[in-house]
Amino acid sequence: KELVLALYDYQEKSPREVTMKKGDILTLLNSTNKDWWKVEVNGRQGAVPAAYVKKL
């Protein structure tokens, strides 16, 4: 499985998103959308802005 690093804090704004903190390591589930990537963090799945994460 592919991992990404959170470059910034992000507070979810809808139920389809997830909150992450700078430095979090997230499991990347889907990166086909260039703006929003689906990730899993702390057992929750949701979208985060692609510009806020970097593939490891």
Rank of each mutant, 00 (worst) to 15 (best):
Y8N: 08
L28G: 01
G46I: 09
V4Y: 09
G23H: 04
E40D: 08
S31Q: 12
D9R: 03
L29N: 02
K13S: 11
A51L: 11
V41T: 11
K21V: 09
T32D: 15
L7R: 05
K22W: 04
L5D: 01
K54L: 13
V18P: 00
A6W: 03
A47V: 15
L3D: 03
W36E: 04
W36S: 03
L7H: 02
N33G: 12
T27K: 11
L26A: 09
K38F: 15
Q45E: 12
W37A: 04
I25R: 05
E17Y: 07
N33H: 12
S31H: 09
K22E: 07
S31C: 13
S14D: 10
L29K: 05
Q45V: 15
K22I: 06
P49I: 04
A47Y: 15
K1C: 15
K13L: 09
A47P: 02
R16H: 14
G23P: 00
L5M: 14
R44C: 07
L5R: 09
K22A: 13
A47M: 15
Y10P: 00
L29R: 04
W37G: 00
Q45Y: 10
N42K: 09
Y8I: 10
D24G: 03
K38I: 15
K21D: 03
R16G: 15
I25A: 02
T32G: 11
L28C: 06
D35Q: 12
Q45I: 15
A50S: 13
E17L: 06
L3P: 03
Y10L: 02
V41P: 00
L29D: 00
P15R: 09
S31K: 10
V53L: 15
T32K: 11
L28N: 00
D9C: 06
G23Q: 02
L3K: 11
P15F: 10
K1A: 12
E2C: 15
T27Y: 12
T19H: 04
L5G: 02
L5S: 04
E2D: 11
E2I: 15
S14Y: 07
K1R: 14
K1F: 13
P15A: 12
A6M: 04
T27G: 05
D24P: 00
A50K: 07
G43H: 06
V39R: 01
Y52F: 13
Q45H: 09
A51D: 10
Q11N: 13
L56V: 10
K21R: 13
V53T: 03
V4D: 01
V48H: 00
A51E: 11
E12R: 14
D9I: 03
E12Y: 06
K55T: 09
L3Q: 10
Y10S: 01
K13H: 09
I25N: 02
G43A: 04
A51N: 12
V41H: 15
V48Y: 00
K34A: 13
N42P: 04
G46M: 11
L3F: 15
T19V: 04
V48D: 02
D35G: 09
Q11M: 13
V39T: 00
R16Q: 14
R44Y: 06
E12T: 10
L7E: 03
E40P: 00
L7Y: 03
K21E: 06
Y10N: 00
G43D: 06
V39Y: 00
P49M: 04
R44A: 06
E12A: 15
V53H: 02
A50D: 02
D9T: 06
A47L: 15
K55W: 09
V39A: 01
L3M: 12
V48E: 01
K38L: 15
V39F: 01
L56Y: 10
S14F: 07
Q11A: 12
A50Y: 04
A6I: 03
E40C: 12
G23W: 06
P15W: 11
Q45N: 07
K54Y: 10
I25V: 11
D9P: 06
Q11V: 14
R16W: 15
K13Y: 06
K21Y: 10
K54V: 14
V4F: 06
L56F: 11
K21T: 09
Y52I: 07
E40Q: 09
A50W: 02
Y10H: 03
Q11G: 07
K21Q: 09
E2P: 12
A50F: 03
A47S: 14
L56R: 02
D9H: 06
P49G: 02
E12M: 13
E40K: 06
E40W: 08
L3T: 09
L7I: 10
Y8F: 13
A51W: 11
W37S: 02
G46L: 11
N30C: 14
Y8D: 07
L28W: 01
N30I: 08
Y8G: 05
G23F: 04
E17P: 06
L5I: 15
A50V: 06
Y52E: 02
M20C: 06
N33Y: 08
K1W: 12
K55F: 11
V48R: 01
E17I: 05
Q11T: 14
A50Q: 05
E2N: 11
M20D: 00
E12G: 15
E40F: 07
T27E: 10
R16C: 15
L56E: 03
L28T: 00
P49S: 02
A51G: 12
S14Q: 07
K55L: 14
G43S: 06
V18L: 14
M20Q: 01
I25M: 06
P15Q: 10
G43R: 04
L28E: 00
V39K: 01
M20N: 00
G46R: 05
Y52Q: 04
N30E: 15
K1V: 13
T32I: 11
S31E: 15
E2Y: 13
W37H: 02
D35W: 15
E40T: 06
V4H: 02
P15I: 11
K21S: 09
W36M: 07
M20L: 09
K55C: 11
L29P: 00
Y10K: 00
N33S: 10
L5Q: 11
E12V: 07
K55H: 09
P15Y: 10
V4C: 14
L29A: 03
V48I: 09
D35V: 14
E12P: 15
S14C: 10
N30V: 09
